[in-house]
Design a protein around this nucleic acid. Structure first.
Lengths: 149, 149
DNA sequence: ACGCTATAATTGACATGTCAATCATTGACA
DNA sequence: TGTCAATGATTGACATGTCAATTATAGCGT
């Protein structure tokens, strides 16, 4: 792999990670986009779909359909809220809690595999780079859309 | 953004990058998966679909369908090869060459934006980290599938 | 209280990717 | 040469994501 652009480097690392994680996800019964929703709901019980879309910066439509799947799989429930009939309150079922625990454990092992041979400093540095790259793009995007409008 | 796992860090950086690049791709008339195919075909004229699938480690089915789109968009042509009637020879049209040049230029600008505030050493380090992470996962995957079989 | 606008969720249509099945061609071996 | 297995491409079905349109509810301003 001799890529010339960071764009492709990032793609390949991400893509390989998803590929590596696939068997585990299949075993747990989750799709590749679902763990993040699971973890957010675990950390914020009774949150709304909108919160998920905002936090992960994905389309509410994607959230809506993933919740459909996760509800059908028995990992979450959409509970009606008397006060707010527009949004549902989301929470994990027992199976959802269990799936989340499995995922978290596996995810930690995966991170360990990915960072094999990295020193503690390098890990911190890598995380810092990823955050900085993310923020640079985010800032640029905000500027450009603000300017264009 | 205060993620606890590298898994999510990588996802967010990748996702933000794709989001940042979207307007440019729309302008050129390319889908998000097409630039990499374009660049490979530019570097390897008359290559086969299989080579694309192998190089980028994606499913041949995805390649097949993206080529359909790119052919319909007028960026590539599938030329029959008398010797080998199973695969087609792929090449860029003039429009394809032009799209590739636009993409490459924009991609360089994007990398510059993403790496704003990075020193030269940090850039090299970041690239190295991404390659090492990729290879760690690749090796682990090979081991596990070899072992499982 | 009424109506208008803004917000939340959903649905449809599409792109990218996976997986499984099919189909055609190739190439090797009896 | 003729059969048969391996290879390459395609197609169908699904998950994730985008975008645009629709629907229902909230909430504000008069």
């Amino acid at each position: 792999m001799m890529e010339t652009t960071f764009h492709l480097l990032l793609y390949r690392a991400f893509h390989m990670q998803r590929s590596y994680l696939r068997p585990c996800l299949r075993e747990i019964g989750l799709g590749s986009g679902q763990p993040k929703l699971l973890s957010y709901i675990a950390a914020h019980p009774n949150c709304r779909p909108k919160a998920l879309a905002d936090y992960f910066e994905i389309d509410p439509a994607a959230v809506s359909r993933m919740l459909d799947v996760m509800e059908k799989s028995g990992f979450i429930v959409r509970r009606a809220d008397g006060k707010n009939r527009r949004s549902a309150c989301l929470s994990l079922t027992e199976a959802g809690e269990e799936a989340f625990r499995s995922w978290r454990a596996h995810c930690q092992r995966e991170d360990a595999v990915m960072l094999r041979g990295f020193t503690e400093e390098e890990r911190a540095c890598f995380a810092d780079f990823l955050v900085r790259a993310y923020r640079n793009l985010q800032d640029a995007q905000r500027e450009e859309t603000a300017c264009g409008k």
